[in-house]
Design a binder for these strands. Structure first.
Lengths: 324, 324
DNA sequence: GTGAAAGCGCTAACAC
DNA sequence: GTGTTAGCGCTTTCAC
């Protein structure tokens, strides 16, 4: 930067301004600085800038995983909105491991990120405490809680589970199955699913809990598992669409016709849900919108604006299609 | 940090050492420092550390996209290896846009990342120049070139396209179709595919070029497109498995039996390839291994070791399954 | 519209 | 094994 300043015949301060607030520099000066920058191939050191300004321009996002996953959409929404506002997004994946989350939060806080998005509302005490102490805007996502670290954007997994159970029960399916990875939000969906089933006489429930994060293959295995538990199974709710598509594949292989022989419902309403045959009934949760709204709230906080409400319930919608 | 030092009764330097090189600090001192850190909830400022040490501990990776994608696997391989070595991975997505790549490279260089992985071997002149000037280890991936910016880890897309064409031709399929997103590497695969077809008398080729980055839906549309061009089509090569699965879905919807009526081959050998019905013939390219080997080379360079060969050809393998 | 001085929080290099 | 000194490359604040 010193070289640039010298070449342009100005002070470092003017170079700095020409880069960050060009409007505050005289056009002629600006032109000379730009020329010098291009000439020297100067790349401003954002690390030094962050240290001096106490703002990193980085928002961190922590999700369980991004493989063929519901969270990729959320990341897209978040990234699009934040990038447009001049922020960079730093992505961290936990693989559904609470220790990994703790380590990531620590690392990101160490980088002095300006804000953070985390997935879910259950975090280790240490993580919560660090996040609160950091004093930066934080959004928890993909669930709701009355007691957020800072802000929450999501929907009630419990209610969504209950709603899809009622949907299936209303259609006359009584012998139900549940297939899902074993993570917090899936357990909430299952709890809601179960609660609705318990209220209906004659309704039954089989469970196939998979390792958190499994997808197609997990769905195929789960289907076999559930059918072994109850050969007369009538409908299966899968806690995400990848698992549901896996179940659909397994049905096809076994010659089970969906929904005639067995109904299948998914969760999250990924693009693939509307593409498979039969098309997949699923619970739309606005994965992308979660990211966008989270970004909006973070930006509002960073701009010093008061956030209207720290708990944003985006709700959900049952997308009735052919499979159930 | 000063507070921690005061509380532990040592100098800042000792605190710094206790954190980064605990072995070099007396156990008793270390214990006092740890206690002080915990007491105060001190989180070291990595930004300041990076500035002072001139090492960020960050490796950046730039891929076109990570949605239900072949690159997610590469990222996993890269991240696993680098995380184990104490580095953090910063992910950037270009959405197949060269300008986005340029902006990302500039931003990452501004953060003084210690190394970088980029996708493909074609980059804007400015990007190349900046990367070379930065003097950091750089790996280009998912293709090969005799003239790398620094190092390359991949396979020949051209050869892979030729190989799958020969595979199909050998099986007696002569009226061939190609469906793929319109990006550099896909075009290389197509060029190889075409080259092999041209050498066979009586063989024909229809093309359906999709926007770069499409997947299931694109595959369904492409299949319709190709069939409209040649109703007597015998086999289709899709430049990635998501497109191939989309094509498979469309076949199912139209009552086309695969491979009896039409053969389908994919590319990249994603997990889903072995799960669908019929199982999908695909070209295995070691997506994860590209990430791992890239990490290995970057780490070697960062450790000051000489890298045996800057061009690492991981080759590919045709996975013959039911669909073709 | 531009510049000078001070310092962000840490680590390299060296001394003890 | 521990401490001291001198910066890393910027931006803040305030002066002109």
């Amino acid at each position: 930067m010193e070289d640039v300043a010298r070449l342009a015949g100005v002070s470092m301060m003017t170079v700095s301004r020409a880069i960050r607030e060009p409007a505050k520099v005289a056009p002629a000066t600006r032109a000379r600085v730009s020329a010098a920058i291009a000439d020297l191939g100067y790349v401003p050191n954002l690390t030094a800038g962050s240290l001096a300004s106490q703002r990193s321009g980085i928002i961190a996002a922590i999700v369980p995983t991004i493989d063929n996953s519901i969270f990729a959409e959320t990341m897209r929404g978040l990234t699009a909105t934040l990038t447009a506002a001049g922020y960079q997004v730093l992505l961290g994946q936990t693989a559904y491991d609470e220790n990994a989350e703790e380590a990531l939060v620590a690392a990101f806080l160490g980088r002095r990120v300006d804000g953070m998005l985390v997935t879910g509302v259950n975090h280790s005490a240490l993580t919560r405490q660090r996040l609160i102490k950091a004093g930066i805007p934080v959004v928890e996502t993909w669930d709701l809680t009355a007691d957020p670290i800072d802000m929450v954007v999501g929907f009630s997994n419990h209610d969504a589970g209950r709603a899809i159970a009622r949907y299936l029960l209303d259609r006359g399916y009584l012998r139900l199955g549940f297939a899902g990875g074993n993570d917090d939000r899936t357990r909430s969906r299952l709890a809601g699913f179960e609660a609705a089933i318990r209220r209906v006489k004659g309704a039954s429930l089989m469970r196939a809990m998979l390792p958190a994060g499994t997808s197609f293959r997990g769905g195929r295995e789960a289907l076999g598992d559930l059918l072994a538990q109850d050969p007369g199974l009538q409908a299966v709710f899968c806690s995400n669409d990848a698992i549901a598509v896996g179940a659909l594949m397994e049905c096809r292989r076994r010659g089970i016709e969906v929904p005639r022989d067995l109904a299948i419902a998914g969760f999250a309403d990924l693009d693939i849900a509307a593409e498979v045959t039969p098309t997949l009934t699923s619970v739309h949760v606005g994965a992308r919108r979660i990211g966008e709204e989270s970004a909006r709230l973070l930006l509002a906080r960073l701009a010093g604006l008061a956030v209207e409400t720290p708990v944003l319930d985006l709700s959900f919608l049952i997308m009735a299609r052919e499979s159930a």
